[in-house]
Computed example of a mutant assay.
Amino acid sequence: MSAEIAEERIERLAALAEEAAAAGKFDRSREYVRLARRLAERNRLSLPRRFARSTCDDCDVFQRPGVNVRVRVQRGRVIRRCDCGATARYPYRE
């Protein structure tokens, strides 16, 4: 499979995961995230930053702020705490 096709599929799976999470179908969203990650690994691609930071590394669910993830901002970083208990910290610039 060429890299362009894999990138298109990853983008489509990211969109499907977001739609499923918006509809409250978190199990389906989790499957789309897992498929996208597996496809990226197989083709040695990185996930798009927006998609990678919107998913939980532990439980693979697409995160919806206020629904299944708590988002806090403090001292130059964004802290995302998932319902599964996983915490992710990302820097940001003002």
Rank of each mutant, 00 (worst) to 15 (best):
16 L>Y: 08
13 L>G: 11
81 R>F: 05
81 R>P: 05
26 F>H: 00
85 G>C: 01
14 A>I: 10
69 V>T: 00
55 T>H: 04
69 V>L: 00
59 C>R: 03
13 L>K: 11
31 E>N: 13
18 E>L: 11
22 A>R: 15
1 M>T: 08
76 G>V: 01
5 I>C: 07
1 M>R: 07
76 G>C: 00
29 S>P: 05
3 A>Q: 12
74 Q>S: 12
32 Y>C: 12
54 S>G: 14
51 F>R: 12
8 E>Y: 11
60 D>G: 01
65 P>N: 00
75 R>S: 07
46 S>C: 06
82 C>E: 13
23 A>E: 08
14 A>H: 04
22 A>H: 09
27 D>E: 15
36 A>E: 06
8 E>N: 11
12 R>D: 08
58 D>H: 07
69 V>W: 00
79 I>E: 10
33 V>S: 10
41 E>Y: 00
36 A>T: 07
47 L>P: 05
46 S>A: 12
82 C>L: 13
48 P>C: 06
71 V>L: 06
82 C>G: 10
54 S>K: 09
67 V>F: 05
39 L>Q: 01
49 R>S: 12
81 R>L: 15
55 T>P: 14
89 R>V: 14
11 E>N: 13
52 A>H: 13
55 T>L: 05
12 R>Q: 09
52 A>P: 08
64 R>G: 01
58 D>Y: 08
82 C>T: 05
34 R>C: 09
70 R>G: 02
9 R>H: 06
94 E>I: 03
23 A>D: 05
80 R>W: 09
1 M>I: 06
52 A>K: 14
16 L>V: 03
81 R>Y: 06
78 V>F: 04
39 L>H: 02
89 R>Q: 13
87 T>F: 04
61 V>T: 13
53 R>I: 10
4 E>C: 09
75 R>W: 01
62 F>Q: 08
92 Y>Q: 01
65 P>L: 00
42 R>V: 05
80 R>E: 15
83 D>N: 10
78 V>C: 02
86 A>H: 15
33 V>F: 11
4 E>M: 06
88 A>R: 15
27 D>W: 04
83 D>T: 12
64 R>T: 13
58 D>Q: 09
15 A>L: 12
29 S>W: 04
54 S>H: 12
